[in-house]
Computed example of a mutant assay.
Amino acid sequence: MRHADNRMERNSLINGALKGAVAGAIAVWVMDRFDWFDWEHEDPETRQRTQQVRPGGMDPAHVTANKVAEATGKELSPSQPHPAGQMVHYSLGVGPGALYGALGDQYPVLTTGRGALFGLGLFIAQDEILNSVTGLAAKPQDYPWQDHARGLKQHVIYGLVTDSVLRLLNKVIKS
C-alpha cells in the first residue's frame, strides 16, 4: 500500500510540474506582451540608459545564450534577438512554472496572492540578485528606477498568469 501511495504522489508531482511548465510558458508569452508595450512607451532616455548598462546592450537571456555559444566556439548572429536567447528566456519561465505546479499544493505559501508573491520572489531573486552576481546584467543600482518598476510589474504578471493557467489546467486535466 505504501508503494502505491509513493507512486501516486510521484505521479501527482510530475503532472503538476508538466502543467506548471505549460502555465509558465504561457505566462512568459503574456509577460512579454506587457513588457514590450511598456518598453516601447518608456521615455527614450530611460530606455537608452538601460541599454547602456546592459552587458553588450543585451538582456540577460541573450547574454547567457551568447556566452554559451562562445564557450562552444560558436557565434550567434545576430547576438540579439536570437532564437537561442528566446529559448533561454522561455526556460527561465518554464522552470519556475514547473516548480510552482509541482509544489504549490504541498507548500501553499507559494500560491499566496494567486501567484503575485511568487512573481515578486522571482523578480528579486533573478532580476535583482542573480543576474548581476553572475554577470548577466549590471549592478541593480546602475539601472534607472523605471527598469526595476517595469521588471517588478512583469514578474507579478508572470506569477498571476502562471497561477491562473495552472488553476484552469487543474480543472480541465484531473491528475
Rank of each mutant, 00 (worst) to 15 (best):
D32V: 11
F34Q: 05
F34I: 13
D35W: 04
D35R: 15
D35L: 06
W36G: 12
W36V: 09
D38Y: 04
E40K: 13
H41M: 06
E42D: 09
D43M: 00
D43A: 03
D43C: 00
E45L: 10
T46L: 06
R47F: 06
Q48D: 12
R49K: 09
Q51A: 13
V53D: 04
V53H: 03
G56Q: 04
G56H: 00
G57I: 03
G57T: 11
D59V: 13
P60Q: 02
A61Q: 08
H62T: 15
V63A: 01
T64Y: 03
T64D: 01
A65I: 10
N66H: 02
V68D: 03
E70C: 05
G73M: 06
G73W: 12
K74R: 15
E75V: 09
E75M: 05
L76H: 09
S77H: 10
P78V: 10
Q80S: 14
Q80C: 07
P81T: 01
G85K: 03
Q86I: 09
Q86Y: 11
V88I: 15
H89E: 07
Y90A: 01
Y90M: 02
L92Y: 07
L92A: 08
V94S: 06
P96M: 00
G97L: 00
L99C: 14
G101K: 01
G101P: 04
A102M: 13
L103K: 00
G104P: 02
D105A: 14
Y107A: 07
Y107F: 15
Y107R: 11
P108C: 02
V109Q: 11
V109A: 10
L110G: 07
L110D: 11
T112D: 03
R114D: 12
G115P: 15
A116K: 06
A116Y: 11
F118K: 06
L120D: 11
L122S: 00
A125F: 08
A125I: 12
D127G: 06
E128K: 12
I129T: 06
I129H: 01
L130I: 06
V133A: 13
V133W: 14
V133G: 01
T134D: 03
G135A: 07
L136P: 09
L136Y: 08
A137L: 11
A138M: 00
A138D: 02
K139Y: 04
P140R: 10
P140M: 09
Y143Q: 12
P144E: 13
W145M: 12
W145L: 13
Q146C: 03
H148I: 10
A149Q: 12
L152C: 02
L152N: 00
K153D: 08
K153R: 12
I157W: 13
I157R: 06
I157M: 04
Y158M: 14
Y158K: 13
G159D: 03
L160Y: 05
L160F: 08
V161C: 05
V161Y: 01
V161S: 04
